[in-house]
């Protein structure tokens, strides 16, 4: 359990509590260990700052320290995003991966490409719903000995759908393999580019 700092001035205590609460709020989605480490480190920073300033009231000192640290949302955001993405990639959480790489895609061509690949796998997965609602027009269609279409097709005259109920399993298998490959590729790319410090 982290020991908090006690202030004699009430308003200084409030500023301190509010700042720690903002920090906790920004990092609330991180794993427990990371959360504790960050809060303890910020707490230690504030304590050392208060101790090193000889003069001035507590409120002046705490305000100076917190303004020097900056807005927790700003300075902790890079770490929160990186940790969340690492965690999501490790646990294959598609929703989380998509929401983070969508934000990153705005400033990085690399992430934009991965975002498109993930969207493509989502679109492929949606074929399951097409099969549910338009069973005759969705599947693997053969014409003679050649594959005519895979997925949803409007014009299916002269073709035979060969998968039937197996279509669901085939789609799930394709999407799983594709999703797995993209995620592993993204993890590998991130491992290579993580050497950027800023």
């Amino acid at each position: 359990m982290m020991q908090k700092i006690s202030f004699t001035e009430r308003n200084a205590q409030q500023v301190y509590e509010q700042f720690l609460s903002n920090v906790s709020n920004v990092i609330k989605d991180l794993p427990d260990k990371d959360r504790n480490e960050i809060v303890m480190e910020i707490n230690s920073h504030i304590y050392e700052g208060m101790e090193s300033m000889d003069n001035g009231s507590e409120i002046d000192r705490i305000l100076s320290i917190t303004s020097q640290l900056g807005d927790p949302h700003e300075f902790l955001k890079p770490i929160v995003t990186e940790r969340q993405l690492d965690d999501a990639l490790k646990k294959f959480k598609l929703g989380k991966i998509l929401s983070i790489i969508y934000k990153k895609a705005k400033t990085s061509v690399n992430y934009a490409m991965f975002f498109i690949l993930y969207l493509f796998s989502l679109c492929t997965f949606s074929l399951i719903f097409f099969k549910l609602f338009f069973p005759a027009n969705t599947g693997l269609f053969y014409s003679g000995q050649r594959i005519k279409a895979f997925g949803f097709a409007l014009n299916i005259s002269g073709t035979t759908e060969v998968l039937g109920g197996w279509f669901y399993l085939v789609v799930i298998a394709i999407v799983s393999v594709f999703y797995g490959i993209i995620t592993l590729l993204l993890r590998a790319t991130r491992r290579r580019t993580k050497h950027n410090f800023v």
Partner: peptide, 12 residues
């Protein structure tokens, strides 16, 4: 800014 350094330390 003091806050700038912490993410860098964590990455390092």
């Amino acid at each position: 800014t003091d806050g700038t350094l912490y993410p860098i330390l964590i990455r390092m």
